[in-house]
């Protein structure tokens, strides 16, 4: 069997691809920021917060880490409206991704912040720092320094995992591929190009996160 590649058939749909690309990038950027923020607060609360809060966060982390992302997404998009919370596809995608990354990054950042020796925290307190100052300058900064590579990997996993938001018709890159191949039946070409786009995004994201890490949290 001989199959003739026809990439030119994708050209009429370049705007669909471009919109999908931008959507995936935007969704990743926004939910990464929100997710890492959730993770940072979660890690602090889990390490230094009251026991009931730490327990609650532990349950959250385990729940998210042990269920499929697609199910989490469906729950947010199809399940929550039953409880009276109606969301657009974009909102649901953002919330599901933030909740997902929030759980993983809580665990990752906690690994770094729990490594802070008690004595180092006491040194900060003895220097008249507030709890918040100690948390920021003494606990979190070195924690991020330690776990940044792991966090960067998780962010890329979430970015690639975002392809499932096409299942609730959020118009991301994968949605674009589905859409195009349903019109021109060029499945190989569509998914091939989109796969390359994800690859490019992953490589770029890793490079950007590495640069950001060495700027924000320079290694000792």
């Amino acid at each position: 069997m001989i199959y003739k590649l026809q990439f030119a058939d994708l050209l009429p749909y370049w705007d669909v691809l471009a919109r999908g690309f931008v959507f995936t990038v935007a969704l990743t950027v926004v939910s990464t920021m929100a997710g890492v923020l959730v993770g940072t607060l979660g890690a602090c609360a889990r390490t230094f917060g009251p026991r009931w809060l730490a327990g609650l966060l532990g349950a959250y982390v385990e729940l998210i880490r042990n269920t499929p992302f697609l199910v989490q997404l469906f729950f947010v998009y199809f399940g929550l409206p039953a409880a009276g919370l109606k969301l657009t596809e974009t909102q649901a995608a953002f919330i599901a991704m933030t909740i997902n990354l929030g759980a993983y990054s809580t665990e990752i950042i906690r690994a770094g912040s729990e490594a802070t020796p008690k004595g180092v925290i006491e040194a900060g307190v003895s220097l008249a720092m507030t709890r918040l100052q100690v948390l920021r300058h003494v606990v979190l900064k070195p924690a991020f320094q330690k776990v940044w590579p792991a966090l960067a990997s998780q962010i890329i996993i979430v970015m690639l995992g975002s392809s499932v938001v096409s299942q609730i018709s959020a118009e991301d890159l994968t949605y674009a591929a589905n859409f195009i191949q349903s019109r021109n039946f060029r499945a190989f070409e569509s998914y091939f190009v989109v796969a390359l786009a994800y690859l490019l995004l992953a490589v770029l994201t890793r490079a950007i996160l590495r640069a950001l890490g060495s700027r924000l949290f320079p290694k000792a």
Binding site: P117, V120, A123, S126, H137, V138, P142, Q145, A220
Partner: peptide
């Protein structure tokens, strides 16, 4: 001021 047995410097 306080100085500790284990130094407790900020490692980063």
């Amino acid at each position: 001021g306080m100085v500790f047995q284990q130094f407790n410097l900020f490692p980063h």
